[in-house]
Amino acid sequence: MGITEQILVEKSQNGDTRAFEQLIKMHEVKIYNLLLNMTGNKTAAEDFLQETFLNAWQKIKSFRGNSEFSTWLYRIAVNAVLMKRRKKKVLRTVSMDAPIITTKGEINRDFADDWSKSPTATLENTELKNKLNKAIELLPEKYKTVLILHDVENMNSEEVQKILKISLPSVKSRLHRARLFLREKLSGYFRGH
């Protein structure tokens, strides 16, 4: 935590709303985008962003600085979404086991078209962009959160581990399976074209 941020946290802990506003400005874009990607819904992301900062403001006196302030904030945001999902008991089953390997233990030829150098393999291609967002949305929650934090918000595995409080091998395994799932969905898009 930088000195400026540390001072802002201390002032916020003493009830200074202006200092907390500065902290909001420092972190709101990243947290908002995390929530947008997690929910796939603008209104829900806005509600969760408000809930996150309101929770953080109310509990900031309990923040002891054992972790980065941003890690603490991210944890509040992720927990807010997960808690709501648990309450709703959304049971969505998406198979994460893409049939990539043949019985002989080889990569399935169907999956081998190389679309990576296609001129349409860019996010300027709105169709592909939508396909990617849709695929992320389809991911089961535990895979989705890891993928967003690591590959969309560009955190390293250790940072993700601290936010989600899971082991490093779990972070890596969930990330890998999420990436395989997305690759399969994008391959499906290119096969259809």
């Binding site: 709101e28 874009v29 990243k30 908002y32 985008n33 947008l36 990607n37 962003l49 078209d113 190389d114 679309w115 990576s116 150098k117 393999a121 860019t122 996010l123 592909l128 990617l132 967002n133 992320i136 993928l147 590959d151 969309v152 560009n154 990436r179 395989l180 997305l182 690759r183 994008l186 391959s187």
Partner: peptide, 18 residues
Amino acid sequence: NTFKKTVELCHQIEMQEV
């Protein structure tokens, strides 16, 4: 190549303003 491209595309998802 396609796996790597998938990860690159994720990195390119643009941040939206609050």
